[in-house]
């Protein structure tokens, strides 16, 4: 298969970026998207065309959340429910032009080419995305039964990989789906209850501070989430937020 690639190139955070167009021929349809970029980079080096395109990637099996490209107007490309590394070239037509951009958000500054800094997500988690259980000194694992449905729902929320596709897809670059997945997970579990009221307020405050937008319920995040995290998590977080604001004793 042959492709024309329009790729965003940007030397560093301060530099002004631009699109470069590269032609790539003879790609197998079984090739993954990132493998296609590997081949491109080999070609760029060997043919002395340009420095290789820098893009984040690690596990290449859709779980680490490292990869993330905005491909032809959709985060993680045209396939639903997959990360960029699991996207295969058979999803494109021979001769297609593919435009590849980095995640765009104020809270995700570009480091180089297609690599962005997502440490804002870590900062949100640090505000309250945990249950304070110091090592040791916890009850037996079966001491508190948890209804299967709650556990399953918590698991679904917890399967977020923190890739940032929700932010990239959202017209407001909002991190609501990401934050709500974590808030939901703990809201559903009895272990998460003691800190629930503080957690939701602090995490949202941090999200706002970091420059993410607000939610306008467009649900592009849900449509693009490679782990199919549901928008009902956002509703649950809103509920938690209202409940916290109305009943919390803390200032």
């Amino acid at each position: 298969m042959d492709f024309t690639l329009k790729i965003w190139r940007q030397e560093n955070a301060q530099a002004k970026g631009h699109f470069e167009t590269y032609k790539l021929t003879g790609i197998s349809p079984d090739c993954s998207f990132l493998e296609m970029l590997d081949i491109l980079n080999e070609t760029l080096i060997n043919d002395n065309i340009a420095h290789p395109v820098v893009f984040d990637n690690d596990c290449r099996e859709g779980i680490c959340g490292m990869c993330g490209l905005y491909i032809n107007g959709r985060p993680h490309g045209p396939d639903d429910g997959v990360t960029t590394c699991q996207l295969h070239m058979r999803r494109f037509k021979d001769g297609d032009t593919i435009t590849i951009e980095p995640w765009r958000a104020k809270a995700f500054p570009i480091i180089k080419d297609l690599v962005v800094d997502r440490s804002a997500f870590d900062k949100i988690i640090q505000e309250g995305g945990y249950i304070s259980a110091t090592t040791g000194g916890v009850p037996d694992a079966n001491a508190i039964p948890i209804p299967k449905q709650d556990a399953d729902e918590a698991m679904d929320a917890a399967s977020c990989i923190g890739c940032g596709a929700c932010v990239a897809a959202c017209k407001n670059a909002s991190a609501m789906l990401f934050v709500s997945a974590k808030v939901s997970q703990f809201a559903l579990l009895p272990q998460g209850k003691p800190e629930a009221k503080r957690r939701v307020v602090k995490m949202i405050k941090k999200m706002d501070e970091l420059g993410f937008g607000g939610c306008t319920n467009t649900y592009a995040c849900e449509a693009e989430c490679p782990k199919s995290i549901k928008k009902t998590n956002i509703a649950r977080m809103n509920r938690e937020f209202i409940c916290s604001k109305c009943t919390s004793n803390e200032q």
């Binding site: 945990y130 009850p139 299967k148 399953d152 698991m155 579990l189």
Partner: peptide, 9 residues
Amino acid sequence: VAQGVPFAR
């Protein structure tokens, strides 16, 4: 479990 890891139940 105390940390909120949602093991299968």
